[in-house]
Amino acid sequence: FLTDADPGIECFETMYATRAEGVRHVERHLTRLAASAAWLGFPCDVQALRARIDESLAKFADQNAPHRLRLALGKSGAATITSAPLAPLAQDTVGVLLASDYGFAPVESADALLLRKTTRRAEFDRAWREAEAQGGFDMLFFNERGELTEGGRSNVFVKRDGKWFTPPLASGVLPGVMRGVLLDDDAFGAQERVLTRDDVLDAEALMLTNALRGAVPARLIR
């Protein structure tokens, strides 16, 4: 159904950008977008998208002001780019809640769309908005096996025994851009590992990551 009919979803990337420095980790974003498009059977002209991004950046009034740049790609291969100034976080450490404590169902680890950044994310969006209503930034999900997966708008890293760990993609996790950056950083030394609710509750530290905010310390709100 993904190739013969419009699946009713888009691939998208939400990126941090300034006019002076361009899009942070732009190649990682475009590589992920192209991979998602290929899996869905969407045409994706990466060179044309680069040109469209450059056109958008040139319109920013302040060359150093951070912006949220959103690139969406539909089944026809048509792209839409929107942008808005990015306000700073109110606090250096953000609050995180557990989605299962607020009535959210487990995610299904076998759902292949979890590995792609698409607009089929109503429950994720509802979760982070509920987190904001509770004074937090995001909610953490678990899968049908009780394994930690990710936040509604972030990946999560958990510190145990002095080392950082993040759930593997097989648990049902989006390969986030900042997640990839940190896993590729030998000095940081993070590893993938199956994690549980107890790992979150007993963590020495928590960290949320996404392309817009980078890596942000987090605390659990109970």
Rank of each mutant, 00 (worst) to 15 (best):
Asp138Cys: 08
Phe12Leu: 06
Arg153Met: 15
Glu27Arg: 09
Ser56Trp: 00
Arg219Val: 15
Gly135Gln: 09
Gly214Phe: 12
Val107Phe: 09
Pro106Tyr: 08
Asp54Val: 11
Gly135Ile: 08
Leu69Tyr: 04
Pro175Trp: 07
Gly146Ala: 08
Leu71Arg: 02
Arg193Lys: 15
Asp62His: 13
Asp45Cys: 05
Asp198Ala: 15
Arg50Asn: 07
Val107Ile: 13
Met207Gln: 12
Asp202Gln: 15
Arg222Ser: 13
Met15Cys: 13
Leu206Gln: 06
Arg129Cys: 02
Glu130Asn: 05
Ala5Lys: 13
Gly8Trp: 08
Thr14Val: 09
Leu148Ser: 02
Asp138Gln: 08
Asp92Ser: 15
Leu2Gln: 06
Arg126Gln: 12
Arg121Lys: 13
Asp202Gly: 05
Gly77Arg: 07
Ile81Ala: 06
Thr82Gln: 09
Arg121Met: 07
Ala87Ile: 01
Ala218Tyr: 11
Glu21Thr: 14
Ala38Ser: 12
Leu183Pro: 13
Ile53Tyr: 04
Leu201Pro: 09
Glu55Leu: 07
Gly41Leu: 05
Ala34Glu: 14
Gly180Phe: 02
Tyr102Asn: 13
Glu13Gln: 12
Thr118Leu: 03
Arg24Asn: 03
Leu49Arg: 14
Thr196Gln: 03
Thr149Ile: 00
Ala58Pro: 03
Asn64Leu: 12
Ser154Gly: 04
Asn64Ala: 13
Thr119Val: 08
Pro167Arg: 01
Val177Gly: 03
Gln47Glu: 15
Thr31Gln: 13
Ala35Val: 01
Leu97Ile: 08
Lys117Gly: 08
Thr3Phe: 13
Ala84Lys: 14
Gly135Trp: 12
Pro85Lys: 03
Leu113Gln: 11
Arg197Phe: 05
Glu132Leu: 11
Asn155His: 05
Gly136Asn: 06
Val194Ile: 14
Leu183Tyr: 12
Asp6Gln: 02
Gly189Lys: 10
Arg50Phe: 03
Ala87Pro: 00
Gly95Ser: 10
Glu147Ile: 00
Asp54Cys: 02
Thr80Phe: 00
Arg68Cys: 14
Leu182Ala: 04
Gln134Ile: 01
Ala215Ile: 02
Ala90Arg: 14
Glu108Met: 12
Glu132Ala: 14
Thr14Gln: 12
Pro167Ser: 04
Thr14Phe: 04
Gly189Thr: 11
Ser100Asn: 12
Leu86Thr: 06
Ala65Cys: 06
Ala84Val: 10
Arg153His: 01
Asp92Ile: 02
Ser171His: 11
Asp202Lys: 15
Asp4Phe: 10
Asp4Gly: 08
Thr118Ile: 06
Phe137Gly: 03
Arg129Asn: 08
His67Met: 04
Leu140Glu: 01
Phe137Cys: 03
Met178His: 02
Leu115Cys: 06
Thr166Asp: 06
Leu69Ser: 08
Ala105Trp: 01
Phe42Pro: 01
Met15Ser: 09
Val173Pro: 02
Ala17Gly: 10
His67Asn: 14
Glu132Ser: 09
Thr118Trp: 05
Leu114Ser: 04
Arg28Thr: 05
